[in-house]
């Protein structure tokens, strides 16, 4: 485990002193299923953005822009919450992603 800090170099008690540093922890590799977004079907209701527990829905100027696959754990909540008429997000098994 080279590159990791020794016990004298880290804050005590597991404290994390830097705010918002969860971003540095990449959790994308945890995924079994990957969300695949179809931009043409998307109505930008942003339900996926509201429900995503990992802040992995990328939104710019009020529009859905894509999914942050470095942090998305593949829970599938976005696909579940995507309105049934649109079905703009589909979960596919990792490694079988179509064109992504």
């Amino acid at each position: 485990m080279s590159g990791l800090k020794g016990w004298r170099e880290i804050p005590i008690g597991g404290l994390i002193l830097d705010a918002g540093n969860a971003e540095q922890y990449k959790t994308g590799s945890w995924r079994t299923y990957r969300p695949v977004w179809d931009e043409g079907k998307c109505i930008h209701c942003l339900f996926c953005w509201i429900y995503c527990p990992d802040s992995a829905i990328i939104v710019e100027e009020g529009k859905m822009k894509g999914i942050d696959l470095e942090h998305c754990k593949g829970c599938g909540i976005c696909a579940e919450e995507c309105p049934p008429k649109e079905k703009a997000i589909e979960m596919v098994l990792e490694g079988e992603g179509k064109g992504v």
Binding site: M1, L4, G6, W7, I10, I12, G13, G14, I16
Partner: peptide, 13 residues
Amino acid sequence: FGPLDLPDYYFEH
């Protein structure tokens, strides 16, 4: 306070 601490740091704490 109290975050996850896996095999890479638990022992140090």
